[in-house]
């Protein structure tokens, strides 16, 4: 017997007592109770709690808000499909990642910031979800630069974790981000800033 067959055979024999069917209760909250108008505030509150920067912007003021947040010189990394209007007021150097000319890890390591959108955001837990979709790019873009600026339209915010996961396609590469990188490894106290971006700025657009 090969290992696969043997492990499966062991498991089948271990269940020889024929354990009963188990019904799974689902009495937990799947949808939130938060007033939709207040979701963005709840998200902001949670993000601040984990030391992310939170900035509010109108659609029209977005380019200005972003350029004020981004380092004047750059270099700024962006995925290929980031909307032009986001960068309309930015004068620094911009490095565009693309399938044809992917940015190397060294280049990314030397970049000052990265600017992306997200797939959805979960208010309850202060979580941004990236799935490699529009304006998000490859996973390493939001990992290597030390500063991540993420644009979140308030209409993309959901209340609960179940609502957030429902919006995702499981087989895409998914990254859930809740605050800047952190560790609790020293005396179990939380310290922000280890290997991932040490600064996370979230721009809420309403």
């Amino acid at each position: 017997m090969n290992a696969r067959e043997e492990v499966l055979a062991r498991l089948r024999s271990a269940l020889g007592d024929g354990p009963a069917e188990v019904a799974v209760p689902r009495a937990y909250r799947r949808t939130g109770t938060c007033d939709p108008d207040r979701l963005a505030e709840l998200l902001a509150d949670r993000l601040v709690d984990y030391r992310a920067g939170v900035h509010w912007s109108s659609q029209d003021g977005l380019a200005e808000t972003l350029s004020a947040l981004l380092p004047a010189e750059g270099p700024l990394v962006v995925p290929p499909d980031v909307p032009d209007r986001w960068l309309a007021a930015y004068d620094g150097q911009v490095l565009v990642d693309s399938d044809d000319a992917p940015l190397g890890t060294g280049t990314l390591d030397g970049a000052a910031s990265v600017l992306t959108g997200c797939a959805t955001a979960i208010a309850q837990t202060g979580t941004l979800v990236l799935d490699g979709g529009t304006a998000q790019g490859r996973r390493l873009l939001t990992l290597i630069p030390d500063h991540h600026v993420c644009v979140v339209p308030v209409t993309d915010i959901v209340d609960t974790v179940p609502e957030g996961l429902q919006r995702l396609a499981p087989t895409r590469p998914l990254t859930l981000i809740s605050g800047p990188s952190a560790t609790s490894d020293i005396e179990l106290s939380r310290v922000e800033g280890v290997h991932g971006p040490r600064r996370l700025d979230v721009v809420l657009v309403r």
Binding site: Y50, T127, G132, R139, V161, P170, P173, T175, L176, S178
Partner: peptide, 19 residues
């Protein structure tokens, strides 16, 4: 003791061009 840990990664097999 966090509402959510800073990073959760999920991947399925191989994604061409990413990872």
């Amino acid at each position: 003791g966090e509402r959510m840990n800073p990073y959760t990664s999920m991947w399925t097999g191989v994604t061409p061009g990413d990872g």
